[in-house]
């Protein structure tokens, strides 16, 4: 005979409640027991309404990004490290050394506290790895159903070395184009976790902060331009660059680094890896004579171990265009992504 048991008592502390964002006691508890200990640094610990810090003369870079990824936990990372790495990499693209981040959370009522703890821990690790401090933040809780689990916004400030000038105007005819790793990893990883697709893959997200690698590179190589090819993939980013710099870009299909699992998943789902999102890649434009050295230097970092030259700038002061030299000697246009890439029937 079954013995009657009391159900486990409902513990409101296990779940995020509206009051955690209400500015009262629960908000204070959440901040002081979770956020302050994890992100502790002298500026944050002042517990001011905003972050107060000294600034030097010169140029700074300032950026913001919001993260709404679903699922929030995936192979290779989670929404937390994505939020830190994304903003760090955006600053890095500007040629800046990232210094400070803000973190704002919009959380759905009923979100498990343990998941929030896990996300905050990974933000802590990612910010430590990137060498940035999370100096101020905000927490809001919305009614159940008003947002999907958790959204995070991070803003970042970085300082730009006076000798570094990263601008699309600096791209020159003959520049080599280098990618720091294999393409399509993040997008395929996220797609594969959507249960409706019903396929499994070992592909892990490439999410990573690239600032240390790029900083080291910029000490030895005059980088003309760089950008991280995130949403819309390599094709969309290259088209943006070609347009804004009025340059013609040629890629060599043979040299594109695509992992076998990503290639197989793309063939299966009818997707083009050139349009799949990345989160830990940098596209770098350097003078041709520095191309080999750039690849060599990138390869010294784990995030750059698959770095390679994928193409070149073949003309300047022209209509922006991205062309692909196919495996068989033909050439075709590479367009910007139209709408979302949707799985096809065949």
């Amino acid at each position: 005979m079954k013995t009657k048991q009391c159900p486990l008592p409902y513990n409101p502390k296990d779940l995020i409640q509206l009051a955690h964002g209400g500015g009262g006691k629960l908000t204070h508890e959440l901040i002081s027991t979770m956020f302050y200990p994890a992100f502790s640094n002298p500026i944050l610990n002042e517990q001011h309404d905003g972050a107060i810090f000294d600034c030097k003369e010169g140029r700074m870079a300032y950026t913001t990004d919001s993260f709404v990824v679903d699922p929030i936990f995936f192979n290779g990372g989670d929404i937390g490290d994505l939020a830190v790495n994304g903003t760090v990499n955006d600053l890095t693209c500007c040629g800046a050394t990232p210094l400070f981040l803000t973190a704002a959370f919009i959380i759905e009522e009923g979100f498990p506290m343990s998941d929030l703890q896990r996300i905050v821990e990974s933000m802590k690790k990612a910010s430590q790895k990137a060498g940035v401090a999370i100096v101020t933040g905000d927490t809001k809780v919305v009614d159940k159903g008003k947002c999907d689990k958790i959204f995070i916004n991070t803003s970042g400030i970085g300082i730009i070395d006076p000798n570094i000038h990263i601008h699309s105007d600096r791209i020159e005819e003959g520049d080599s184009i280098i990618i720091s790793g294999k393409i399509g990893q993040h997008g395929i990883c996220i797609l594969s976790t959507r249960e409706s697709l019903g396929f499994e893959t070992d592909v892990a997200s490439d999410t990573a902060s690239l600032n240390h690698m790029i900083q080291s590179l910029s000490e030895s190589v005059p980088i003309h331009f760089m950008r991280d090819p995130t949403r819309g993939g390599l094709s969309s980013t290259l088209n943006e660059i070609a347009d804004s710099a009025s340059v013609r870009i040629e890629l060599d299909e043979e040299s594109l680094p695509i992992g076998e699992s990503v290639l197989s998943a793309c063939e299966l789902l009818g997707l083009d890896p050139l349009y799949i999102a990345n989160e830990g890649l940098m596209l770098i434009f350097v003078p041709k004579k520095h191309a080999e050295k750039t690849v060599e230097l990138l390869k010294q970092f784990p995030e750059g171990k698959d770095a390679c030259i994928i193409g070149k700038v073949t003309a300047k002061n022209t209509d922006g265009a991205v062309l692909l030299n196919t495996l068989y000697g033909g050439q075709r246009i590479i367009e910007m992504l139209r709408g979302e890439q949707l799985p096809r029937i065949c």
């Binding site: 196919t326 495996l327 068989y328 000697g329 033909g330 050439q331 075709r332």
Partner: peptide, 9 residues
């Protein structure tokens, strides 16, 4: 055929 530019061959 279009993607690999086979017609060129």
């Amino acid at each position: 055929i279009a993607r690999f530019r086979l017609e060129d061959l």
